[in-house]
Amino acid sequence: METTPLDRIVASHPFFQGLSPDICALIAGCGRNVHFKPGGWIFRQGDSADAFYVIRHGKVALEMPGAGQAIVFQTVGEGDILNASWLVPPYRCASDARAVEVTRAIAFDAVCLRGKCDQDHHLGYELMKRFVPVMVERLTHARMQALDLYAPEAARP
């Protein structure tokens, strides 16, 4: 099978490490290169989660909009993935995502990839094996942030 530049990028990305060339090609078939300027919105909370991103270069701030100023609760960068909401119904983005720096990524079409996963459960399983650890790790980090570990302790002398 002939490989494309995108196939090779997918195959060499740490997130997809260990996947066979065939599966990499299947995944890459739903992908396209994208880039965002600093300050540009990648998605907004409530948007249809019609893509997930593998960041190749740059930095993205995940923000929670609210009354007054938004709060940045995480930044992601090179090697990270962005927007796990593509996996979970009702497929809505859970936060805002804004490029902090010039950001280059591969955007994977969610409908395309979900369709391939429905047809090929092995592909779906391989993707789940890669997404679930990231989500568990982010949940752990979110718990640590929620504990507010660095808050002043009132009980000190």
């Binding site: 930095k59 701030a61 709060i71 940045v72 609760f73 752990t140 980090h141 942030q145």
Partner: peptide
């Protein structure tokens, strides 16, 4: 830092990252 306003250019997240 654990959280920041949008004008913070640095990293946001836990020390583990």
């Amino acid at each position: 830092v654990d959280h920041a306003s949008p004008d913070w250019p640095g990293h946001v997240g836990t020390i583990l990252q």
